[in-house]
Amino acid sequence: MAAAHSAASAQDADRVERARVEFADAMAAIERGDWVAARDAFERAHALAPRPGLRLNLGSARIRTGQLIEGAADLRAVLSEAGSDDPEIRAAAREQLEALEARIPTITVGVIGALTGVRTTVDGVDVEPGEAVRVDPGAHSVELWRGDARLAARAVEVAEGARERVQMVALAELAPPEPTVGPPPAIADEGEDLATDGAGDGSLMGVWIGVAGGGLIAAVVGVAVAVWLASDTPPFVGNVPPGRVGLP
């Protein structure tokens, strides 16, 4: 029993000694301005011998290297964990944390459209639409999913303190249209010239006829023919998933 206790104490002493070495490495890295190396050394030191002071240093180094979220977590841990009773360390943690809050950027994802069954993610983590998600400054990936199908993706670059809003649209996935019988209604004029004849814009028409004549339209016709043969109401379905989308 006593031997086991002695062995454990020796192990603890060894870990503390190794933590001291890591701490010294971290301080040397700070001297030469290498905060990434300092952060890594503080991390190893804290893992070997968890102390509020080391956690404070680790948090500061993380903040210096752009890891604001983890740095804030370190500072909060210093304030909340048992053993954090050194008033100087607590005051330093509190002061840094207060200054940090406004620097942490957020991304808020908004979704409109066909919302049934959709979910949104930031960097692969599910988030609630409308919720301001705290992130580190830098590049982030915002995605919109319905089941296993990714509907949209957006790369977002956020700066310190930014309040980024990303608006995404869940496009409707339409079932094939119900058959309708009778003459088609008159063409609606929705106000923009785009839906009208377009006469007088000969150059544009020339461009499009030229493109169509170049063989692209063959792909459309090929698919359309295949669908036409299979159904009285031949919806065109493209080869880009989901193949057919409704625009609200």
Binding site: A114, E190, L194, V220, V223, G238, R244, V245, G246
Partner: peptide, 17 residues
């Protein structure tokens, strides 16, 4: 390619797309 995609209206308005 070519990559193809069908667009259909899901509302009243038809323009602009």
């Amino acid at each position: 390619g070519p990559h193809t995609l069908a667009l259909v209206p899901a509302g009243e308005a038809l323009s602009p797309v």
